[in-house]
């Protein structure tokens, strides 16, 4: 009798264990499945596989105002590395981004969260005051900054936005030299992480539409995170 009840107890314990494991698995699986939100296919190519934390930096804008990682937090930042002596790719891209920002005004919630940052990799010729005027031409939500080579290099490296300042062409006089630069528009999320990118050639409609979807995906994902974890 004693023996029998012992077997029974063992059996119920085993059953309980199986049930417990099953329940845990189901509970674990359920929210888990909901939490791993896959990005919609159309925005996949614009997103980094994993959002990348940026280390702090210090760049200088007009009136000696500094721009650091903290200034990127709480907003979506569209970042472009260029230089004002670039007559073709830079004004073209800045024009496209400015137009995209105007298109985004149709979505006031999204529009309130965006800022554009033009980082000049040519601090020798581009003063912060000149940059202020330069970016204002394209959009009022743009900030122009530059910095010393070490700061520029450190940030550019984190975004894989390498640039090269070329020696002056021999036949040219004065201060004329060319700079090669990455013409991707980088997207930093409100947590200050490198989140996405718009490779060249960009179009205003493309940037606006993709950004709306990226933002929606981001908000959706953080909402789920918040509830289940």
């Amino acid at each position: 009798m004693n023996n029998q009840s012992g077997v029974l107890a063992k059996r119920s314990l085993a059953l309980l264990l199986v049930v417990a494991v099953a329940v845990t698995a189901v509970i674990g699986w359920w929210p888990g499945k909901n939490t791993v939100v896959q990005p919609p296919e159309e925005i996949e190519d614009y997103l980094f596989w994993q959002a990348k934390d940026l280390t702090d930096f210090k760049l200088i804008g007009a009136n000696s105002k500094t721009l650091s990682l903290n200034d990127l937090k709480g907003k979506w930042s569209f970042i472009f590395f260029g230089y004002t002596h670039c007559p073709d790719v830079c004004p073209l891209t800045m024009g496209v981004l400015g137009q995209a920002f105007r298109l985004l005004e149709k979505d006031p919630a999204a529009s309130q969260e965006i800022q554009g940052i033009f980082i000049s990799v040519d601090p020798k010729r581009d003063t912060p005051e000149l940059l202020k005027e330069y970016v204002a031409y394209f959009n009022s939500k743009f900030t122009g900054v530059t910095g010393d080579t070490a700061q520029l290099d450190a940030l550019a490296r984190q975004m894989s936005a390498l640039y090269t300042i070329h020696p002056r062409e021999p036949e040219k006089t004065g201060d004329n030299y060319l700079v090669s630069h990455n013409s991707t528009v980088f997207l930093v999320d409100p947590q200050g992480r490198l989140y996405g990118r718009f490779p060249p050639p960009q179009a205003p409609q493309e940037i606006a539409e993709i950004f709306i979807k990226i933002r929606m995906f981001y908000n959706e994902r953080s909402k789920k995170r918040w509830f289940f974890f």
């Binding site: 004002t84 002596h85 670039c86 007559p87 073709d88 004004p91 073209l92 000149l130 005027e133 330069y134 204002a136 031409y137 394209f138």
Partner: peptide, 9 residues
């Protein structure tokens, strides 16, 4: 291509 009035190029 139009650019800000303060650009040289």
């Amino acid at each position: 291509l139009a650019a800000p009035p303060n650009v040289k190029v």
